[in-house]
Amino acid sequence: MRAFGSEDFARAFEQVVLAGRWQEEPRYYPRYQSRYEAVLHRFAALAPGEPVDVLEVGGGQLAAMARHLWSDRATVADITDACFPTLAEQGIETFRFNLALDESGGDRRFDVILLSEVIEHLPVPGHVALRRLRAMLRPGGHLICTTPNLYRLRNVVYLALGRPIFDHFDTPGDRGCGHVLEYSAEHLRWQIERAGFADIELELREFAHVPHRRTDRLLMRVGKPLLRVPRFRDNLLATAVAP
């Protein structure tokens, strides 16, 4: 376990994430700052005090912050190289990896793998991708995964209004997909177990953010009391161990 402070996180987030050039448009990152903080807080609780080998699949911001905060040996894998120049400037190793298609990321082995808001973009069963990641972890290594909750209030409202909640599902290709699949807590746990992980812990979490659409912001305010019920919260936060 290592020290984690909200003030230290906020400074690092400004220096590393907000000042960088990444895949999403710049307004995306401050909107979802609370999710980044929750993931790194959990990472700090699981990781030992000394630096570790950490891989982030997708994004790269979490790995960059782990390097900045704790001097971890960070690596980032992604289906595109959009974030690679920013990561190279920070001395972070990168490689192309299509988690929906590639059987292996090579001979690399890691102590922690971060998979945040990625699994819902993969048009393959979750356990297929997760098994590939398990093979890249050292025995006793940790997976930390976040993904939208299928039963989140936003989806309930969208279904009631006849609005689509998923993007079109297609066979895996060489480009990323939209949200082609979302998981309930029970379904995600099953996928992680099927992939061969142990010591699975899963929480329903609400990461504060402000929706883009005015109508969605209104619905969020009206429905806020329902978020006391875990089933309706926005996100799943799962951790698991490679046996």
Rank of each mutant, 00 (worst) to 15 (best):
W22A: 10
L218P: 00
Y32R: 13
N235S: 15
C145S: 05
L115W: 02
A238F: 03
D8A: 15
F13T: 11
V156C: 09
C145A: 13
L204F: 05
V229P: 09
E56F: 05
V222W: 11
P164H: 10
R163H: 06
H121K: 02
P51S: 13
V210G: 03
I200E: 02
H212A: 15
D167R: 00
L114T: 07
M220Q: 15
P148E: 10
Y28T: 02
E56D: 04
G106A: 12
R109Q: 15
P125Q: 04
E117R: 12
V76G: 11
T239Y: 05
D216G: 04
A129C: 06
L226T: 08
A74Y: 13
E56M: 05
G20F: 00
D72S: 11
G58V: 07
L130C: 04
L143F: 07
R11Q: 15
P172Y: 02
A129P: 00
Q33T: 05
R131L: 01
Q191D: 14
E89H: 06
L237H: 08
V210Y: 06
V180S: 03
T171G: 04
L188G: 12
L99S: 07
R152N: 15
R131M: 00
L143G: 13
E14T: 11
V180K: 01
L226M: 14
L202P: 01
V241E: 04
H41N: 10
A3V: 12
R108N: 08
I113C: 06
Y151T: 13
F110E: 07
I144L: 15
A198R: 12
V112T: 11
S116Q: 02
R231S: 01
L133D: 11
V76L: 08
P164V: 14
E201H: 10
M220E: 14
T215I: 09
A44I: 08
Q61L: 05
M220H: 14
A47M: 03
G60N: 13
L99K: 01
N149Q: 06
R35A: 11
R134N: 01
F169D: 08
S34I: 00
R11D: 15
D199A: 12
L122W: 01
E7Y: 09
L161H: 01
L188T: 06
